[in-house]
């Protein structure tokens, strides 16, 4: 259970404190402090190599940071054992740039795998749930298809259904449309947009500025391993305060 602090309208669900990552001498993340509140949709933008994807990957500790901590639902999770961490990861759905559908399973099996093998659902129960999710992402008719026979957009929608099957408290999207052909970007963004409307907490690393503007509650601009500017889409896109934000936006929005 969360403890509500006085004066806070919302509960902080995920927080990073001085999150730092060094690759050799290269400081990729320079002590990031961030807070994500329940129900928030956050779009993380920034130039390539700004550290936004790296930051994102530490939220469920797929890799260990050099220093700093990650707090999820009031628990500092980077002190947990691997087994305890597995429990935490169940609650954080993750969608990857390159989809990462399990190549050895069909679409339905991809969605079924974790509910059956982690939560212990029967094949019947899992399938029932998976079919509902596939319907939600518009792919109910392709349940038996192998990942390779699907388009990139379809694969990514299956990946979203797969993550949702664990009933996560937070969804992490790492550039979900970057590997897609342009004509497929829309179908994936629509699914994410619909998800946002259900009140799901989401952190989306993205290059889709229009999407960030329309869907996000908060837009964070990152550069050189630092969180430079935060604000509502209007604040960040229309009235950026920092020079680097202005510079970045002028480059991406002009073209």
């Amino acid at each position: 259970m969360f403890i509500l602090k006085a004066g806070e309208m919302m509960t902080v669900i995920l927080e990073t404190k001085q999150l730092t990552k060094k690759f050799g001498d290269n400081l990729v993340l320079k002590g990031i402090d961030s807070k994500i509140e329940q129900g928030q949709v956050i779009a993380v933008i920034g130039p390539s190599g700004s550290g936004k994807s790296t930051y994102h990957r530490y939220l469920n500790l797929l890799e260990q940071p050099t220093s700093g901590s990650v707090v999820f639902e009031d628990q500092t999770i980077n002190q947990l054992t691997e087994n305890e961490l597995d429990k935490i990861r169940e609650k954080m759905g993750m969608v990857f740039q390159s989809f990462n559908l399990f190549a050895n399973y069909s679409e339905l099996e991809n969605v079924n795998l974790a509910p059956m093998n982690v939560q212990g659902l029967t094949a019947e129960a899992a399938t029932k749930q998976s079919q509902a999710l596939l319907e939600q992402v518009g792919l109910a008719d392709k349940a038996d298809a192998q990942p390779t026979s699907l388009s990139g957009g379809q694969q990514q929608r299956v990946a979203i259904a797969r993550a949702l099957a664990m009933h996560p408290d937070v969804m992490l999207f790492d550039e979900p449309t970057s590997a897609l052909d342009p004509e497929m970007v829309g179908e994936v963004l629509n699914v994410i947009k619909n998800l946002a409307q259900t009140g799901m907490t989401m952190i989306i690393v993205t290059h889709e500025m229009g999407f960030a503007k329309n869907v996000a509650d908060q837009v964070w601009f990152m550069d050189e391993g630092q969180l430079i500017e935060k604000g509502t889409p209007t604040q960040v896109f229309d009235h950026p305060q920092e020079a680097r934000t202005q510079d970045f936006l002028s480059k991406v929005l002009v073209s």
Binding site: L62, E82, D86, E90, L113, N117
Partner: peptide, 20 residues
């Protein structure tokens, strides 16, 4: 990416190895 996807779903190291 296959490992990452499996681990992100809460599958343990062993299950990831065995199932994926």
């Amino acid at each position: 990416g296959q490992t990452e996807a499996a681990r992100s779903l809460g599958l343990s190291n062993k299950k990831t190895m065995r199932l994926v």
